[in-house]
Design a protein around this nucleic acid. Structure first.
Lengths: 120, 120
DNA sequence: CTAAAACCTAACGTTGACGTCAGAAGCAAG
DNA sequence: CTTGCTTCTGACGTCAACGTTAGGTTTTAG
């Protein structure tokens, strides 16, 4: 499929797809005239990339991990890397949970016993 | 206390503290010569700011919410805003959880049954 | 009193993941 | 054939939360 189709199917912009290639995350084949051609599997790959970006991984980190996904093999180094990212994500989840609870506290306090009725 | 002390106590850079003021998140008093002076309460306030930044809120959003925290009163609008941010954080936690599980899957698959022994 | 340390304002630099625009070329339909 | 949509390669623009540098003042330690 061509880049526009992939963009539509993944809901990722054409620019982003080119950017992913630039970062070494995606390697489409090229037609004679230079147009990119993607296999069906690219759809899932883009979704994985999006998910990892969403989790705060950088292009560089994702690029380092993709060969593991492709080859289904990890070196001790890449395994350590993966575990480190997982731990970072866990830490971030904990942080977000605290922030959320904090926000709920604020909501509770500021929604307090109808301020308009105090002293009335 | 002065800006350097606050920076030390909150582990936030001096530049960041000035930036927070610029964004309307912090309002220190000034000494005759123009130096910023912070009350002790500023320590907790900076921590709250950091926590909200960490949760992905923007300066603008935080600036809108601080008056509620100060006055301990929220308007229906600000309450909706707070709830919206909380929901966004919950969504983000869910996303991170999925990504983490995905990473764990990758770790499992790539750490598979000793690849070096296959076909040996 | 003096030198070092801390502070001030103003303003440009950084980073990452794209958005956007310019100009040229490929491709399906009538 | 040509109209119009898609794609191509640069390359500059964006945005947020600071980092950094410059040049000058204030405070503190000795």
């Amino acid at each position: 499929m061509r880049i526009g189709d992939l963009a539509t199917r993944t809901r990722v912009s054409v620019r982003a797809l080119r950017y992913y290639e630039e970062q070494g995350l995606l390697a489409p084949t090229r037609s004679g005239s230079g147009q990119r051609h993607y296999a069906d599997a690219a759809v899932n790959r883009v979704r994985l990339i999006q998910q990892l970006y969403g989790a705060g991984l950088s292009s560089k980190t994702i690029a380092e991990l993709m060969p593991c996904v492709d080859a289904k093999v990890s070196t001790p180094e890449s395994r350590a890397r993966l575990a480190a990212e997982r731990d970072r994500i866990n830490a971030q989840i904990a942080e977000l949970t605290l922030a959320r609870d904090r926000l709920n506290d604020i909501i509770d306090v500021t929604s307090g016993p109808n301020p308009q009725c105090d002293y009335v």
